[in-house]
Design a protein around this nucleic acid. Sequence first.
RNA 1: GCCCGGGUGGUGAAAUUGGUAUACACAUCGGACUUAAAAUCCGACGCUGGGUUAAACCGGCAUACCGGUUCAAGUCCGGUCCCGGGCACCA
Length: 920
Amino acid sequence: MQSATLEFKYNAHDIEPKARAWWNDNHSFRAVEAPGKRKYYCLSMFPYPSGKLHMGHVRNYTIGDALSRYHRMRGYNVMQPMGWDAFGLPAENAAMANGVPPAKWTYDNIAYMKKQLQSLGFAIDWERELATCKPDYYRWNQWLFLRMLEKGLVYKKTGTVNWDPVDQTVLANEQVIDGRGWRTGALVEKREIPMYYMAITKYADELLGALDTLPGWPERVKTMQANWIGKSFGVRFAFPIEWPAAGGSALSSPARGGGVGGGGDNALPDKLWVFTTRADTIMGVTFCAVAAEHPLAAHAAKNNPKLAAFIDECKRGSVIEADMATMEKKGLPTGISVTHPLTGEQIEVWVGNYVLMSYGDGAVMGVPAHDERDFHFAKQYGLPIKQVIDIAGKPFNLDGWQESYADKENGVCVHSGQYDGLRYMEAVDAVAAALKAKDLGEKQVMWRLRDWGISRQRYWGTPIPLIHCGDCGVVPVPDDQLPVVLPEDCVPDGTGNPLNKRADFLDCRCPQCGKQAKRETDTMDTFVDSSWYYTRFACADQKNSMVDARVKYWLPVDQYIGGIEHAILHLLYSRFWTKVMRDLGLVTLDEPFANLLTQGMVLNEIFFRKPAIPPAGATGAAGGGRIVYYNPTEVDITVDASGKRTGVTLRADGQPVESGGIGTMSKSKNNGVDPQSLIEEYGADTARLFMMFASPPEQTLDWSDSGVEGASRFLKRLWSYAYDQQGDIAQVLQGKADGVLVADGWKPGVAAHADFRREIHSVLKQADFDFAKFQFNTVVSAAMKILNAATAFAATKAAGDTERAEQRLLITEATGILLRILAPITPHITHALWQGLGYGKDILAAPWPQADAAALDTDEIELVVQVNGKLRGSLRVAKSADRAEIEKLALANAGVQKHIAGQTVKKVVVVPGRLINVVV
RNA sequence: GCCCGGGUGGUGAAAUUGGUAUACACAUCGGACUUAAAAUCCGACGCUGGGUUAAACCGGCAUACCGGUUCAAGUCCGGUCCCGGGCACCA
């Protein structure tokens, strides 16, 4: 290679566009199916086009790009695609704020963000780009929805939503702030509406079991998913109910009762079903509790205004589980009694706000002695507490709850009649058998996972392909009428779904009878869009089917990269869809993502002002309003003389704002930092280098501006080092083939040169190890070490021509290693230097550097000597030295002698190649 | 509340998975170059005690906190506190 002369100074804004133009001209990142060649499908979670890239995106895509380029240099056929998760709520919010249709807002954002991604030099195959808001994508959501409907995997039932009584609209959980609607300030109500559900619970067992087939997933993610699916083994059983004879009592009329759990429509239930994982404590039941939505509660409330009011109170408020779980535990008796299935005792039934209707049968047995929630509930309402489990060595008293009361591993049944002395499993088996004998229950597996409600009463999403006909009922849209196209010119105003006002969308003919009919206006949860996009990237141009044969070559995704916040929902839904597609014969794989890297979130401080909350009970917008968040760049922080913060004010008006702690950078909290200014000032390589150096990928990253300068300085030093060495390097590379510099096993003739080569290769070995672990921050630090060492080495004077030639050779080797280690992280500068110094025309095509074992070999090793675990000295010994010899040398060591003087040596621990510990 | 992570200098972090704690950087301070500044280069830099004009040097204590296992703990075990993520309609 003939080298061109390098510019004197590093100029990112000159070399970066040139590098990108070169990749573009050479179609460097076009992924082509090549059967037989090792493929590497590297996928970063596609972004929501919120307006502009944020730091989390830069972090995510830099990690993905580094992995793509690294694998490419290691010889893989790499595909790295990109697309847009383009449906969603923020587009509707923007529409309300600016009057722009969500479609236009979204497409504008995509155009801008695409430019930003391109300016960062990511090795993306843009020919595979897709956006989920386009009909040629979402038609396949609709098509698969219909297939699932046919297979019984989609069904209709009611679900609970947040209802804003002022705007008359359904609110997303994030639009509920402190129990009030974010725009109106009105107290949110719960409302039951019909929805469509996907039967993910039919796959619960497989979704749980298959976690064991995913060695490339982080343990923490698998644990979270396993807990979310929540398989528990227990007993489902019934408390028989003996209703008083018809006549006088408040609960007298069976005819007025509602149906319960599979009973007849108008008959009063004759049993209260519950599920428990602690059947061994059944003899300790002192009450039962049902959810406010439980039919028994509704029945009891009919003639009990106080209870009716309490149930109403429970039904108000948010549907968010975290809110439910932190509420004060409250309850009221129903006046209904049930019969204990084993003892025949009468047990009072209560309504408890801590009982979830969505888990099990919406009712629990109350065993206050051995369940913490039951304990507090019983204490509060003066219900009896009966100990039935004894934990050896742990006293039991009723003063306060103790962890040990719930210990099932070490407990033995007491005060439990025939079950006394049995351990947990024995007791569960015996109780289950006794219940079964009475036909009142049996062992059962229970799941925490619930079916996936996909209906959204929103405009900007995939239309659900159903038609409501007065005669035929709900009719699926025939395949040949897909896609049901969403009109793109609606502007939502916050009062319900605008599709309901669009006759051109709404009115249609019934596919079955041809009469006038109405389209369904609910759209799909946007998680549907993101549940299969990774398969579509393999065949984004396919017009006639959802997927095609190319999926077989590219899938599964070899490396998936995305935020830890997606550890459960998105990843679980995607796994579910893959299995559904497999069972429909569309794909052959069981799991979509072979390896998963969950990057930590980029955090920043949150600043806000909170308007006055209206008095309790107020429902109007007056005095209410939403919290206003201010970007960290808009506030000034004042500090006192010692550097401690004294206050935060908004620059615009000088008035104080509150700090909400640190949190993930998000649009809703307005604490994002725009990476654009970083790119514009320093260039893409500096931005990438800084993000990768700041912390390891899986850890959270608290944003701070400092450190960017350091990254930039390193690239400048790299450039000027290369500039200084270009003559020497050119001399060595004259006439050499790409990349091959020094044969393995070659030993320099000068000791100092051997030391230098050993250092370079040992750092290389470390960097390679770190690359394999995806620990890019230490890869960067390895590159810094190589540059530091090489700069110092290049400054040393050689003793003669032979030494000088050897020095040139070593510098050329070290520089080649340095550029290749850095290439995946800072691709532009390394591309420019690789070409400019004459190593070759494309660093991406260069072989990955290998640490040379011969360079690492030494005759002597250094051992550390400790006395009682404290460092007291070190010694150099021949590599071949045996244990006895090392021990002798260690004991003779001056530092050791000083600390063992006058004491007896009890033991000497020798860790080969590392240290010696003398114990006195 | 429940589930999952994290906590190491002034700051971001490293520690080859139980074996020399603080690599590599940032910030700061000092020096060189310069009429000056910026840039660049060189050096110092956990806390604390002894020591000396200053050094060299010699100790002790430090990985959120308390306790345990071990010859040896940032790393393993038990408990506590704080921070972050998720909790099913944000994506």
